[in-house]
């Protein structure tokens, strides 16, 4: 078991933690942070798993580099959408629809 593989397992742990946060937390900003944690976990798995035999693999590294930039842009877009949502609704979390709680006819 090499150090790179340890990175991959840390990435797996980040994925699981991010997934948990994304489903459990209610504040949209926290959801976004949890989602980004998941993404970082994926990047760690990609890079760590690919180079655990000792040779750095440029292909996953290039993919992760592309992924990081897309992540930044997507995060910024999400923040813009969130602020717009907050501006319009005054809510920081997604509102549960009231009708669904009533018994079905």
């Amino acid at each position: 078991m090499s150090v790179s593989l340890l990175y991959a397992f840390a990435g797996v742990a980040l994925c699981a933690m991010g997934g948990l946060g994304f489903t459990v937390l209610e504040h949209l900003l926290r959801k976004l942070l949890a989602f980004n944690l998941m993404g970082s976990g994926v990047f760690l798995v990609l890079v760590g798993l690919a180079q655990h035999r000792g040779v750095p693999d440029p292909v996953p590294q290039a993919m992760v580099l592309t992924g990081i930039v897309v992540t930044i842009a997507a995060t910024a877009l999400a923040v813009v959408l969130m602020r717009r949502y907050y501006h319009l609704s005054g809510q920081t979390g997604l509102v549960v629809c009231e009708e669904r709680k009533e018994p079905m006819e």
Binding site: L5, A8, F9, V12, A13, C15, A16, M17, G19, L20, T23, V24, V45, L49, A50, H52, R53, V55, P56, D57, P58, V59
Partner: peptide, 29 residues
């Protein structure tokens, strides 16, 4: 949710371990 994601962690970790052990057909580097 905690239990579900513990399961997810275990499954993913197992997958990573399996991939790491498996021989690679093509060496990309």
């Amino acid at each position: 949710a905690g239990m579900v994601f513990s399961g997810v962690f275990a499954g993913l970790a197992w997958a990573v371990w399996t991939i790491a052990e498996a021989p690679v057909p093509v060496s990309l580097p």
